[in-house]
Design a protein around this nucleic acid. Structure first.
Length: 109
DNA sequence: TTAATGACCTATC
DNA sequence: CGATAGGCCATTA
């Protein structure tokens, strides 16, 4: 019985293949631009990793968090690369090309 | 109920 | 430009 997390999970779970979303964006789509921290917390508990691709969630800079290392930070990068996501030498994702436009998708007829 | 924590973001020095 | 501080929200102890 999650509380507000359900809203967040709903968004993250809608992230399409080969696309990434940011905590702030997810929070915004959830209806609260300041849930950024809550989003991270929600994914931290990640009760159902089978439907919640947390590895597709990155910070505002498209970079994966340190504490994300649920099996090696490199793991998340590898997974995203597997989906066709390009990473920069800085270890960041090209948000302007791979950031999931959930807002647009949500409003898309 | 209060205090402390957190996979964040923004502003300031 | 790099580091620090504060703010915001929800969860947990």
């Amino acid at each position: 019985m999650s509380s507000s997390f359900d809203r967040i999970y709903e968004i993250v779970r809608q992230i399409p293949y080969g696309r990434v979303a940011t905590y702030g964006q997810i929070a915004m789509l959830a209806g609260n631009p300041r849930w950024s921290r809550v989003v991270g917390y929600a994914l931290h508990v990640n009760p159902q990793p089978d439907v919640i691709p947390c590895f597709r969630v990155v910070n505002r800079f498209g970079e994966v968090s340190k504490a994300f290392a649920f099996g090696g930070e490199n793991r998340q990068v590898a997974l995203l690369e597997q989906e066709g996501v390009e990473f920069t030498p800085d270890g960041r994702v090209d948000l302007k090309r791979f950031q999931w436009d959930g807002a647009q998708a949500s409003q898309l007829s």
